[in-house]
Amino acid sequence: MVEVTLSAPLGMISLRGDHGDAALREAVTAVTGTAFPERLRIEGTSERGAAWMSPDELLIFVPRDEAVAAVARLSEALAGVHHLVADVSDMRVCLRLDGPGAREVLAKLSPADLHPEAFGPGTFRRSRLGQLAAGFWLEGEGARVICFRSLADYALALLRQSGRDGAVGYY
């Protein structure tokens, strides 16, 4: 079974820049305390970590009350380096899918390959959940989903209904 809830507010920072730039990699890992996330990966967790959004974009997670300082720290570290950093803590919501059925709930809605071979711990996948654009990964005893805040009510209802509709028995 799966319990779907809205996560407590997270600190989230969008960082665009050259992933090959040593200063940028160092600035990121200094903030997250994790490895630098490579393609389609998330390092750390939604509490503190970083996810690979695109070849030149990361989503950095820090505790909510550290977000403003982390943005300042990144800006300072990247002075002189072409980049864009923005506090996006309010832009998205994070939904928790707690329970062993999380993978199947996602597979009801996403065209992405969610077989454990393709979607294991540490995989960060941006795709669709039904009509929503969303990113998701495995965390804790289930999964986490991020989507735009305006869609929070819909996303909650969608994931909850998919959970209520029961196990498929595939994964």
Partner: peptide
């Protein structure tokens, strides 16, 4: 070619 995902047409 950027992220290596074999994307579904509905993701494109």
């Amino acid at each position: 070619p950027h992220c290596g995902v074999q994307a579904d047409e509905t993701e494109l």
